[in-house]
Structure formats: C-alpha cells, structure tokens
Design a protein around this nucleic acid. Structure first.
Lengths: 94, 94
DNA sequence: TGCTAACGTCAGTCCGTGTTGATATCAGTG
DNA sequence: CACTGATATCAACACGGACTGACGTTAGCA
C-alpha cells in the first residue's frame, strides 16, 4: 500500500501490467534516470510487487498479480465494512 | 491512491470503516495532534474518501465506500491484465 | 582480451509534505 | 454574555524519501 503511493512507482506498475520489460525500456518509457528507476524497482521487489528474471545482461521485470490482488481485496473488505457501518448508522457518541 | 499511501491516513480509514467518528475520537485513538489529524482529514475529504456530517460543535467523519471500491477495482484490473500478460509471456524484446 | 552497454550500489543533495504551535471561529453551557 | 471545548486555518519547521552523479560489476561482442 505504502509503496504504491508514489506516482512513478504506480507508473511502473501500470507499464509492467501490460508488458514484461527490462530497465532500459522503463527508462525510455518514463524518462526517469536509470539510477532512480533502479531504486524504485528495488522497493517494489522487496515489497513483493514485482519479480525479476535475469536474461543475459538484461533484467526483465514482471508484475506479481497476487500482490495487487491482496491490496485490492483488503481495500474491498474495508469498503464492505464501511458500507455495513453506514447502513447500521454505527457511530460513537461524543 | 496517492492519499492512501500515508500510514496515518490508512489508520484513519481503518478506524472510520468500523465506526463513524469525530475528530476528538480520532485524536484519542491515534495519539496524533488535532491539527495534524485535521490536515489529513482535509486531504481525505478533498480526495472524496471521507465525508463530513456537522453535528452541533462536533464533526462526524464517515467513510465513502465508493471511493475505496474504485481503487480496489482499478487494482484488480491491473492484476488481471498482469495475469494475462504473464500467461501470454508478453515481453518486449531488448 | 579490450570495449561497451546494462544494471546495481553508494553517498550526497534537495524538495515535498507530514508535523507542529499559534490563532481564529463557532457552538453549546453556565 | 462570558467561557470553554471542538475544529479549521495559517505560517513555519523538520525530516524522510525521491532524485542525482560517480563508480563498480557483469555479460556480450568485436
């Protein structure tokens, strides 16, 4: 959740959703410096959002759908409980 | 998405999912200063994540489930496309 | 075996933004 | 009407984290 808060990282995630890419492609697509991307990719990797596949001197990055599904599900659950408390008008007295 | 990246804001959202609360309660629950919470609540309000209901000199904050559902759905869609590209082994050549 | 291109790491800078204190406002309450 | 408590706004401040430049490493290729 926290790691998806950064705009550039969300951009990376969107791009990787459609294609498996390597760093060079991401540099070309986003216009960001290679070093900067490498940092963000490290964050995404350590968060389990993406996984790498070394291919010669290239490194392909692929999205892990489970990670996105997990946050999506937890947000959906929050929305469901919120809907329930709204329907029950469950409020704490002051 | 961006607004949900902050830990304190996610905390607020979690609390509001279960109960409709006013600022005082949130101060007690989170331990954060009133001013700080007011700022975060403003951000959430302007993002359409929460809505307010003035009640005398109190202000109740309630979660808007549609907002959470929206981000949840968009993440789920990203996950779906990612799964499809993974299955098709859709990668860009270097 | 030199050369280049791809990628990661490190240390430092810089900026956005979360945090705070002071202040204003408004609603109850005595 | 004076007073207190709830909340929002404003103007700094501080700090984490995004961004950068320099460098090291590895893999292909001539």
């Amino acid at each position: 959740m926290r790691v998806l808060g950064d705009p550039l990282r969300m951009r990376i995630v969107s791009l990787l959703a459609r294609e498996t890419l390597c760093t060079t492609h991401l540099v070309a697509e986003t216009g960001a410096r290679q070093t900067n991307l490498s940092n963000h990719l490290k964050v995404l990797r350590e968060a389990g959002v993406v996984e790498t596949e070394p291919c010669g001197r290239f490194t392909y990055y692929r999205l892990r759908p489970e990670a996105l599904d997990a946050v999506s599900a937890s947000l959906a659950e929050l929305a469901a409980t919120a809907r329930a408390t709204g329907a029950a008008d469950n409020r704490r007295a002051c």
